[in-house]
């Protein structure tokens, strides 16, 4: 009860997080995740795992990572010269976006790592993976977009 009261009575700013900080954390998560996945895929491509369907594979893989990264860097770039001090975003959105981003990157990595054990293989498998990756990615992009566009100027 005491905790609930405290939560209900705490200042409004505690429900918000500094926008720059939130963006930087998200970019950090996406950078690390994307780096791991891209390095894995590059090594696979160089060794010859995708022999015979390299173009199809990269055509499938590129939209899984780079549009979201592009969105982030685009927003960061466009606001790089602005003074964003005092801008905040709801913590809920930040946490939601962070959880979904981490979840999506983990699912993507697991998708790539489990391919040797799957019943189908090669492009049949990757096209199958779109069934679960696409909805999750849509949620992630929505969350990241909402976060990167939400703002509040503190008085």
């Amino acid at each position: 009860m005491i905790r609930r009261r405290k939560r209900a009575n705490r200042p409004n700013d505690e429900d918000r997080i500094d926008l720059d900080r939130a963006r930087n954390r998200l970019v950090l998560v996406w950078g690390i995740g994307a780096f791991a996945v891209v390095i894995l895929v590059i090594i696979q491509s160089i060794i010859g795992r995708f022999e015979g369907f390299v173009q199809e594979f990269w055509g499938w893989f590129t939209p899984t990572i780079f549009p979201t990264l592009g969105l982030m860097f685009g927003v960061l770039g466009s606001t790089a010269f602005e003074d964003d001090e005092g801008r905040t975003v709801k913590k809920f959105f930040f946490i939601a976006a962070m959880v979904m981003s981490i979840g999506y990157l983990v699912v993507l990595l697991i998708t790539l790592l489990l391919e040797p054990l799957a019943g189908t293989h090669d492009m049949k498998y990757f096209n199958l993976a779109n069934y679960w990756l696409a909805p999750v990615q849509a949620l992630v992009v929505a969350a990241v977009g909402a976060l990167f566009n939400s703002r509040k100027k503190t008085s």
Binding site: I43, R49, E115, P116, L117, H121, D122
Partner: peptide, 23 residues
């Protein structure tokens, strides 16, 4: 007609299947 996946898991077979083409 489908290429056989890794049935008996071993690290060696798994890494081979992960990084090498499986025609």
């Amino acid at each position: 007609l489908d290429v056989t996946p890794v049935r008996r898991f071993s690290v060696r077979d798994y890494l081979k299947a992960l990084f090498e083409a499986r025609p």
